[in-house]
């Protein structure tokens, strides 16, 4: 950790509800869906915190609250210890950037890589216009792509290259925090590692803090320092990565770990849990986690 001990990002009691459409009056109140049910979480400088859970557990909603795409129903997001309001200043917005799951749809197909990056630098007035070209090349270099890719359109890039461009784009704004939402799940295993190494390298060089969201526990184990396990909108377990995988405390974490197919050993003796995991929608308020 650097000079100060104030975490670049902190969530306090973060809660996000959605109103389900179609009903009025009293029934409407009952149709409120709680996606994130009061989450406290801190990411320190240069730390990678994993956020794992199954579809519908609220991890992407949480991510969107962190970057300011959603405003929380209750609770606070603090940047460097100061709470950001529902309308963030442009400086605050710049400090938290997001990289999305699908590397293809996140890029504008009509723009060359150079133009995407240059646009950001111009709009946010980050470098004088004479330096824009140089900065674009530098950004690509930081994600392991050479300057030759500047003149390429997204369709000519492979999945792994596109995801690196997405990371470069997030970096263009010189953020303190990057929220990486399933950034390698659309990629083949042979290129996943290259993208993960880019993130690890950026953390090491720039002291970037990363909230790494994934449903793939094996990947989380490779790159994260701490892991938060989310279930039905709540964080049910938070531990450093080695502890979590060696001694999971929560029943849900244990079930999640047991369900991962292993590459070695014989056919797993899979024990059907006999209960399905509720989606956010079917979870009654005050949902408790089944003791499996």
């Amino acid at each position: 950790m650097s000079s100060n001990d104030v975490p670049p990002i902190e969530l306090r009691g973060l809660r996000k509800e959605f109103r389900l459409p179609g009903l009025r009056g009293r029934a409407r109140a009952a149709r409120t869906q709680v996606a994130v049910a009061g989450v406290d979480l801190t990411v320190s400088r240069g730390e990678i915190v994993g956020l794992v859970g199954e579809s519908g557990c609220g991890k992407s909603t949480l991510a969107r609250c962190v970057v300011g795409m959603y405003s929380p129903t209750a609770g606070e997001v603090l940047l460097d210890g100061h709470p950001v309001g529902t309308r963030r200043s442009s400086a605050d917005r710049r400090r938290v950037q997001m990289v999305f799951q699908d590397p293809a749809s996140a890029l504008n197909p009509a723009l060359r890589v150079r133009d995407m990056l240059a646009e950001l630098l111009r709009v946010h007035r980050l470098v004088p216009s004479s330096d824009i070209a140089g900065r674009c090349a530098e950004l690509l270099e930081s994600v392991g792509l050479d300057a030759g890719f500047l003149d390429v359109f997204p369709h000519a890039l492979s999945g792994g290259q596109r995801q690196r461009v997405n990371i470069a784009r997030a970096l263009a704004l010189e953020p303190d925090v990057v929220v990486a939402d399933e950034v390698v799940s659309a990629l083949d295993v042979s290129v996943q590692a290259a993208v993960l190494n880019v993130l690890l390298d950026l953390r090491a060089r720039l002291g970037l803090s990363i909230l790494f969201i994934s449903h793939n526990l094996a990947v989380v184990r490779q790159v994260c320092d701490r892991v938060a396990v989310m279930y039905a909108g709540e964080i049910v377990e938070l531990a450093d990565v080695d502890t979590l995988f060696a001694e999971p405390r929560h029943d849900y974490t244990r079930r999640l770990l047991a369900a991962i197919p292993r590459i070695s050993g014989d056919h797993a003796q899979s024990v059907p849990s006999g209960q399905s995991v509720p989606s956010g929608q079917s979870v009654p308020s005050g949902q408790s986690v089944p003791s499996g």
Binding site: Q192, A193, L200, L217, V223, F245, R262
Partner: peptide, 17 residues
């Protein structure tokens, strides 16, 4: 096989092809 992240055993950095 080398590029697969392991869920057991010692933690290893990502290895790409």
């Amino acid at each position: 096989l080398r590029s697969l992240p392991a869920i057991d055993g010692p933690r290893q950095p990502p290895v790409s092809i």
